[in-house]
């Protein structure tokens, strides 16, 4: 991933976050992002649907964490824009939601969207280094001694190297209380990295400065240790939404794997 803020903010080169927004049907993107995403769609026609499968989960995650599991604090990494389908719109008043993203433009835009909504915060931080959020003085003030919280990395593990993912898992494990939950998306797990179309897509993302790291579900399991899935285990995103593989064509399944967009799980200590 590009370290330079100037590169992240450069509107003349495609940006992975803005491409994702376009794939979702959003308008927070520019022509250069749409062109790159259109190339991606030509190679992988299921990509917009896969992106939706991923995004739709946010509402369910909010309900699961706050309503069913009783968390009153969600800390989300690589949040993207906090639009109307994001966590803070789905949780009861009084729930603390801490969003973060490494893109300075997203951070500024997010502050504009969120305004003065109480208990909802947005910080600039890199999801590969969760300590950038957890060690912030403002976050320490917000949380106090609280460590039993809901942590979320959704739709982002595809952009992490193995070392980065292992680092994230360990930092979160060391920081979090025993009753914490880490909602994790094994992003595009079991996609086929050797498919010729996927190889071309990997090159597109290299040009954005955010290369992709496709791995199997088993590799995800190894890297996220010592966290482990709760009783539900890993759920394919198709199954998550009550859909079946008839939503995917044969070619789509060969490329994306049976999950449609990978697998989600609620990790526990």
């Amino acid at each position: 991933m590009s370290e330079r803020k100037e590169d992240i903010m450069d509107a003349s080169v495609p940006n992975a976050g803005r491409m994702y927004d376009y794939l979702l049907g959003g308008h927070h993107n520019f022509e250069v992002d749409r062109q790159a995403a259109d190339q991606l769609i030509k190679l992988l026609p299921f990509a917009p649907k896969s992106s939706r499968l991923q995004r739709w989960c946010l509402q369910d995650i909010a309900e699961e964490l706050v309503v069913r599991r009783g968390f009153d604090t969600i800390i989300d990494f690589a949040s993207g824009l906090p639009t109307q389908d994001h966590f803070h719109t789905r949780v009861p008043e009084g729930t603390t939601v801490i969003y973060s993203d490494y893109d300075p433009v997203v951070v500024e835009y997010a502050h504009d969207i969120l305004g003065d909504i109480p208990n909802v915060y947005f910080f600039e931080a890199d999801a590969r280094r969760p300590e950038e959020v957890l060690d912030r003085p403002e976050v320490k003030d917000i949380l106090g001694d609280k460590r039993d919280v809901a942590l979320v990395h959704w739709g982002v593990s595809l952009f992490f190297t193995d070392e980065e993912l292992a680092h994230v898992a360990q930092v979160l494990y060391d920081w979090a209380g025993d009753k914490s939950c880490w909602t994790y998306h094994a992003h595009q797990a079991d996609a086929n990295p050797n498919d010729p179309a996927v190889i071309k897509v990997l090159k597109i993302y290299e040009q954005t400065g955010t290369p992709l790291h496709i791995r199997s579900l088993e590799e995800h399991r190894e890297l996220i240790q010592p966290w482990h899935p709760g009783e539900e285990g890993f759920i394919s995103l198709l199954e998550w939404h009550g859909l079946d593989q008839s939503e995917m064509g044969q070619e789509d399944r060969k490329v994306f794997g049976p999950g449609g967009a990978g697998y989600g799980t609620y990790l526990v200590k």
Partner: peptide
Amino acid sequence: DFLSNSLPISPRR
């Protein structure tokens, strides 16, 4: 239509 168009709303909705 929910998978084939710009529908950011979850199918449960």
